[in-house]
Design a binder for these strands. Sequence first.
DNA 1: TATCCATTCATG
DNA 2: CATGAATGGATA
Length: 180
Amino acid sequence: MGLKKIMHPCKYDLQRHPDGDPLSSFLLHRSAYSGHLDFFTSPRVKLLPTSVEESTVKKEDTVQSKKQKTRTIFSRTQLYVLSDRSQRQKYLSFQQMRELSNFLNFCYKQVKTWFQNQRMKCKRQQENNWPMNSNSVTQNSSATIEYLGFYAYSQGFLMNAFGNLPTWSSQTWYNPHWSN
DNA sequence: TATCCATTCATG
DNA sequence: CATGAATGGATA
């Protein structure tokens, strides 16, 4: 009727990770976490040590309560998993994306969007005759191994081998709104 | 349905 | 200002 399309409530919602990334904590624990791991020493890593946590502050009550597009800041771990996957596989199917989103704890839509943007970015670089130097992400990282092994990703099974998920399992900071 | 693409717009 | 997540339209 009068309403063309219901605005999804998930659209303009504050979309920040309360925590930098639970994933990394988990991964750190899983791997030989000796003191401080350099972990993701991606060449493109920007200096944001506490930034992640700082970024958490959302402008919730700012007067600018207009339709602000929220730009999600993915944690380095999440980005790593995403890039790693994108390098192997350019296109994922629903299932794969859903599984991935499930693992990373954000919705399918976000994964899809990320992959899309990633493809465009990649394309850009090729068109610009980029030197194609440094391989972006570090080739090998325990993260991938852990991540693959833990979730038996290739198998298509979504089960955690350890049974007990840390507090961050989901629900704490998972927005049901975004599961679109 | 998803993807491509230009564009918007929040962040650093 | 550059990067990049998210949007909307066009298209298959």
